[in-house]
Design a protein around this nucleic acid. Structure first.
Lengths: 218, 218
DNA sequence: GTCTATAGAACGATAGAC
DNA sequence: GTCTATCGTTCTATAGAC
């Protein structure tokens, strides 16, 4: 077995196990058993359990966020060529589409995406700092694009709404079966393009809402 | 120290630790140390770590969901008295308001709410079955109320949108500081009524969106 | 009802032969 | 690069004195 094979097998098994049970619940011994490699391999290749976690994440996050930025740029160029403006739906589509598609792929992307959903629900400082640094560029680019398509929405409202978009997307990524289970089969999460369309429709309407007003007591 | 005191101290400490670090990452020894009680207490009072987790959850979930249902009924009665119909904003307010308020209380409710946010991101079957059974009644009641206020929205679209509302709310509950951190202080998550108003505004607009259409390729 | 003491298993990590 | 063997630690859980 080549070096690349062992490394790969460890990463693949770790991705699945961490996604299904969480970091703390999975031991390195379970990982090596699932990967069918030796106990010592993880420390040989990664040094520690923590370093393994880091690797599992970075392996897929960079390509995903690059694809999002690529699509956003593509839509911007297309809009300019047609002489029109970038639409809100385009921006949301570039943000949401690649992640949902990755979550339905059979090469393990599904597990990585569930892992990301978990991480966003994780308030520990180290995790949040890691997320912020890895999403900073993406966040700024999309924030600009959204501001441009929604000139009437106040800056503060826009930040809140981006947070809510992230939440709606994040829960959808966490567990693809939930909408079907809770709706007794009315929703079909296997229909990829519908999931994306549903999310984009909901989020676009939410982003376009009139200025938020605190509620009068009734 | 009375029996009730010890039990209470264990539950309070467990709530905080589980919320901050997750179930798997926290050992019963850390819990007893934080609670300043004996190592054997947890097994005396709860039997096992798993049973302790169950107790931490049920202690607060029932009152929270009762309050949500109570508010919904209150709004229904008020609307009928005025001869008007229940508004979508009322329904969302009854769903979201109590949870956000609990998340800002200083009696530990804050930690419980973060724990719930984590659980929703947890796809393990046992957790999802537990959640579904404990939220079934609430879900049905609110589903009815939403259907009534949104007669034009298709059943399937409605289910999807409820899922997205849950996601937006869930992420907001997970980590109260995130919107402030990501927006460099522009958002103020300490302003309770604004958080609620922002969420209700966004979700109401999303729920009212026109029928979802799959996207044409561009 | 609270304590000490400890069983018995699993943990992350490493040393050293091959 | 892969293996076995094992270190030292920590874990959940329990038995039994008080």
């Amino acid at each position: 077995m080549t070096k690349a094979d062992t490394r790969q097998k460890i990463l693949d098994s770790a991705e699945v196990l961490f996604a299904e049970h969480g970091f703390g619940e999975v031991s390195v011994r379970q990982v090596v058993q699932a990967a069918e490699v030796n106990v010592a391999s993880i420390h040989y290749y990664f040094g520690s359990k923590e370093a393994l976690i880091e690797e599992v994440l970075s392996r897929r996050l960079a390509p995903l966020n690059e694809e999002r930025l690529r699509q956003l740029t593509e839509y911007e160029v297309a809009a300019e060529k047609e002489g029109g403006a970038l639409s809100l739906e385009d921006v949301l589509y570039a943000l949401i589409g690649p992640a949902i598609r990755l979550s339905r792929e059979n090469d393990g992307g599904e597990y990585f995406i569930r892992l990301m959903g978990r991480l966003f629900a994780e308030p520990s400082e180290s995790v949040q700092t890691m997320l912020k640094s890895r999403f900073k560029e993406l966040f700024l680019r999309f924030n600009c694009a959204l501001t441009a398509t929604l000139p009437k929405v106040k800056k503060r409202d826009l930040f809140w709404r981006m947070h809510f978009v992230l939440g709606a997307m994040s829960l959808t990524l966490c567990d693809r079966h939930r909408p079907a289970v809770w709706s007794d089969g009315v929703c079909d999460p296997e229909d990829l393009e519908e999931v994306i369309a549903q999310l984009v429709t909901f989020c676009a309407a939410g982003m376009r809402a009139d200025a938020c007003k605190k509620r009068r007591k009734r």
